[in-house]
Design a protein around this nucleic acid. Sequence first.
DNA 1: GTATTTTGTTCAGCGTCGGCACAAAGTCAG
DNA 2: CTGACTTTGTGCCGACGCTGAACAAAATAC
Lengths: 399, 399
Amino acid sequence: MERGRGALGPALELVHTGRAPTRAVLTAELGVTRATAGAVAAELEALGLIQVDARPGAAAGSQGRPSHRLAIAPGGPVVLAAQIHADGFRAALVGLGGRMIATAPGCMTVPADPSHIIDAVVEAGAGLLRATGRRCLGAGLAVPSAVAEPEGTALNPLHLSWPAGAPVRTLFTEALAKAGVPGAGSAPATGVTGNDVNLAALAEHRHGAGRGAEHLLCVATGHRGVGGALVLDGRLHTGSSGLALEVGHLTVNPAGMPCHCGSRGCLDVEADPLAFLTAAGRAPGPEVSLLQQSRELLRTEYADPSVRAAAELLIDRLGLGLAGLVNILNPDRVILGGLHRELLDADPERLRAVVADRSLWGRSGSVPILPCTLDHNSLIGAAEAAWQPVLDDPLAALD
Amino acid sequence: MERGRGALGPALELVHTGRAPTRAVLTAELGVTRATAGAVAAELEALGLIQVDARPGAAAGSQGRPSHRLAIAPGGPVVLAAQIHADGFRAALVGLGGRMIATAPGCMTVPADPSHIIDAVVEAGAGLLRATGRRCLGAGLAVPSAVAEPEGTALNPLHLSWPAGAPVRTLFTEALAKAGVPGAGSAPATGVTGNDVNLAALAEHRHGAGRGAEHLLCVATGHRGVGGALVLDGRLHTGSSGLALEVGHLTVNPAGMPCHCGSRGCLDVEADPLAFLTAAGRAPGPEVSLLQQSRELLRTEYADPSVRAAAELLIDRLGLGLAGLVNILNPDRVILGGLHRELLDADPERLRAVVADRSLWGRSGSVPILPCTLDHNSLIGAAEAAWQPVLDDPLAALD
DNA sequence: GTATTTTGTTCAGCGTCGGCACAAAGTCAG
DNA sequence: CTGACTTTGTGCCGACGCTGAACAAAATAC
């Protein structure tokens, strides 16, 4: 039949991640002939996923015929993205290209029953779908817990007071069916569920500070504990059962505080917001998340010697943990989120020096360490995970 | 032209790893039609790589027409495999299927100049090539050091008293040219060089205890220090610059011995043969490698309480390190080599209990921990790395 | 000995992509 | 303004490599 069926997925991914702004670039990136790239672009346009603009406005200065501009189709399909975090939840519709179409935040005290909050966030998303009338192709949910595969259960939703082993994917899929959220075909959506740091890493890789990295390590801390993620060749490395990059129990302070894991001085208890507030001599309040309190303290009272000393202590411990991870994973880029991102901003040289000093050789010592750049990266990441089937095979996903 | 060009590489790999003993199985594994699989098998046979036996002797009991048997061609091409270790060096010719065709051990006191020993081991291998008259398609070298990519330099050849940063790949390639070892086309071979534990992991994955694992973690200790390796989906994960899985500086004993890295209680100094001999109160002798001395002690004097206590101490510390790695990498299998293999054999339940206790959730806690099963697995692994271009594209490699 | 099952082989058909020629749309030099 | 040049988009043909179906071969089952 037509040309360009094999390259449909890769082509969509290139446009999706902004690496193919024009048809000429698409041709080069795919490594195919202009004829094939043209057929691919036409097919994606016919599917309603991208838009081919023959009039690029002002061309890029070089001579020759101007290339057609490729963009995500404005009114195209979306996915439902949802996130549950220490301060509440958030639902959004996200289009290709990581564009947030609509969002609905929800601040609720998290009930012990996970099904209530998952129902609520899905219902908020379904409301956005009804309000916008956009076609929905999938749904993704980010939770602050390791998610075991293939079961889809949350193993340590510590600060949500959920039971360990809550079947979040099943609950999410059931909530989607209840709310009538459609999926790829015409059947109800099958929800994708993942750890929030993992999904944030995916989002940063596709649309943020991780663009172009082949081996991307992300480390972040939100409320309690420390999470990690690794993106290898564009795919999330979740290990054989979804539990990879549980980095919280690296030893970073041999004389440190006891951890619930049985050891002492783990990253989890030495480099999270609670550790920072404690080191700074502040009593954490119950009203907002520990991350917000820590961020506020760091930004407004960094001149205070006790705050500065606490920051440096945490930087040193985080650096030790990062060095250990760099020695094991040898990433070509490291991105920090949550409080770790604030610590990096506060004193980038100190953190980079600690990592370089303790990671052993070669370029490992000078691995770039960057702050994350996307707002709501876990939410965008949940959308990325939901988009994945479409990116893998647009024809099958749109039937 | 002919059928079955795209599937040529995958098909050869299936025969190579023993996963396609017959043509019918090959058809199923490749997911193609019988016609295509037949063409592929015929093409590989024409290339002189495999052998198709129409007479399988005794069929496998089921009814229907017996399937043709696929095997590695007996007189087929080989690669030159070389290994340098604490006790000397070894050269070998290795055919497809991981079959050792010929081997030449060399026990020499390692000179400070790496080029001498690399010349010697390559010359030994070239001698085997001359003696057997086999066609050579490539060459691989295993060294007890991290090898930085893309430079191909040995960064920490500690117990070889080599200079850090020795350009081992360049030296290896030059030695191959000097000895007239042919490569893929008719040009001299371009040598592949890698860390010995990495290559051992590759060999175990293809032909040993790691067969079928998707996420395989290997940890081993030879003379001094501890090495690690990860095989992901059949490919070695070496990180962005070849330095991944440098696991020696995980903290496993907060109150432990100081390490040259600046920390204390690192796996490198707490779970290697020297640590074992020291813990058992034995003074290491200079004549043979510390691994051999440790192995001897463990096998002959395990009844001695001080030896047993030392073994248990090392098992506990190794277990802590393995648990940390399991939490980060979430492998579906762990294979131990060198002294770690002996420790596993000495008390498998103790080691598995420590890992299960400290690795956090789900199946991570019950990840299978197995001893390596291949003799000379680093050497076979060097051969695997040398075979890789042929497995990736047999036509191009044989031109 | 005949039916059944499974495997190997031959051949036609066709989907998908590369290569080529040509058209289109801009810049650059005069 | 015009013509040469450069780069991009499009239509057509052929080739490569696979699927599918029909047929042949080699064993077992009854």
